[in-house]
Nucleic acid binder design. Structure first.
Lengths: 168, 168
DNA sequence: GATGAAAGGCGACGGAG
DNA sequence: CTCCGTCGCCTTTCATC
């Protein structure tokens, strides 16, 4: 683990490619960025060990899993002490609907990004997390119609349209 | 491309694992879910071809790239016709600061998720995209202090803290 | 249809020059 | 950085239920 990392244009080129498809063979990456296969492998290894590449993940389409509704929520708490913020954050982490959440400054205390099956599911979530929590002063719901930048949950392009799924 | 996809508990278990690390050998996956290596490989193949797994990507830590600031913006437009919405969406797609953006209903027309180096960078972005666009009626900035659910850009855990990077 | 075991081939990794 | 050898993993095929 080096103390600091320096990225040149080759590293940036590799990062651009591997952020779209991290299963591409090193041979192809080498051709695209103008390096040898060995060099590509070594650089990727360094990028992963140094933490520049924080993880390698499969991106699952929420729509296919039956969670087509994307909802943003701005949550304001009554008391904004460190303990209360932590407690709320912990509760969020226990809810599978919450894909991401940030503690924020400004008009709200938290920004939530949810992925749910339908409005009924969101209603149940709101009751459990917002209404039943006396420390939640207010929340504002923003329903997404379509994602216009980025795709799915990662920054990678979708592969093809797929019909919803039946879980058995 | 099958007309519909059915997922059983093995598929869900595989998805859970591969969403955290898609480079795990099939041998390990097989041990964890209780299947043979062959079965695991075949199932993953189907999940990818059917689009349930939409992509396989490397997650790059924005902080290491020198973009530690996460900012949400609620944007309201003057005229909300389809043409105006599309035009604005197209401009967003041209800006590297915009990690994700949604067209939404409710108090705003767009929700933006930005990743920038500092407030100066955001100021430049705001001038170019908001102030210089006569169709932007208002925008509200929400600065994230810390992400409390999810990690980085993907849903995967960070690997280790790393010092910022110098680009050369 | 599904699974699990074995043979083959491609790609990643390490060392030498 | 390139070349080469080894090893590990994915692919394919097969028998089986």
């Amino acid at each position: 683990m080096p103390d600091s990392v320096a990225l040149d244009r080759f590293d940036h080129a590799l990062l651009d490619l591997v952020q779209v498809d991290n299963q591409m063979p090193a041979r192809l990456l080498a051709d695209r960025v103008g390096l040898s296969e060995s060099a590509v492998l070594r650089r990727l290894r360094r990028l992963r060990q140094s933490g520049v590449i924080a993880a390698d993940v499969a991106v699952v389409d929420p729509v296919v899993l039956g969670l087509p509704l994307t909802i943003h929520v701005l949550v304001s708490l009554e008391r904004e002490g460190a303990m209360e913020l932590d407690a709320f954050a912990r509760r969020l982490r226990g809810r599978p609907e919450v894909r991401r959440a940030w503690s924020v400054t400004g008009e709200a205390d938290f920004v939530l990004l949810l992925q749910v099956a339908d409005m009924g599911a969101y209603d149940g979530f709101a009751r459990a997390v917002f209404h039943d929590d006396p420390n939640v002063r207010a929340f504002r719901t923003i329903t997404a119609m379509r994602q216009v930048v980025g795709a799915g949950d990662g920054a990678a392009p979708m592969r093809r349209p797929v019909r919803p799924v039946t879980s058995r």
